[in-house]
């Protein structure tokens, strides 16, 4: 049994130690907002937060998060929308939408862990998250808008 916290709640799972966190979350815990894109830490679709930091969960063995705090897109805001999600919807960023939960999780951890944000910071911190539909420019605008609304740009 491995126990850890997901969106503030303690959970216990009985899976081999090297099972990727992504699949524990999706298949054992049934939270489907986080996506699978590459399985090799190459695209960012599977991004969640480990103690508030963005991580690629498709390569994160479950044993490595024992006792720690995981946040998924479902747990990012108790009620209503996170300012980043709000900025996203206002800009109409998503196209197919598939990569977007990973993008949003990446953006949130980056903004929340920064003091002030410039466009080049946005590019640097988002560059590992791929979007096959090419939503990058709208995304950039949304992130800067969100950062502004959070007093960080």
């Amino acid at each position: 049994m491995i126990s850890f916290f997901v969106n503030g709640k303690k959970v216990e799972v009985d899976v081999p130690e090297d099972t990727p966190l992504l699949w524990v979350i999706r298949e054992e815990l049934g939270l489907l907002g986080t996506k699978f894109g590459c399985g090799k830490a190459l695209c960012g679709s599977c991004t969640m937060h480990l103690n508030g930091e963005a991580i690629r969960t498709c390569v994160m063995p479950i044993a490595a998060v024992a006792g720690q705090r995981i946040t998924t897109i479902e747990g990012i805001q108790e009620d209503g929308l996170h300012p980043v999600q709000k900025a996203w919807a206002e800009q109409g960023v998503p196209q197919c939408g598939y990569c977007q939960s990973g993008q949003i999780m990446q953006a949130i951890s980056f903004i929340e862990n920064s003091d002030r944000i410039t466009e080049s910071d946005v590019i640097k911190s988002m560059d590992g998250n791929l979007c096959r539909c090419g939503t990058y420019n709208k995304m950039k605008t949304a992130i800067l808008n969100a950062a502004k609304s959070m007093g960080k740009a």
Partner: peptide
């Protein structure tokens, strides 16, 4: 903006 923008920003869209 797309009518699906909100759902897709919340992460509640299903594939």
């Amino acid at each position: 903006v797309g009518l699906d923008a909100m759902e897709k920003s919340k992460g509640s869209d299903r594939f």
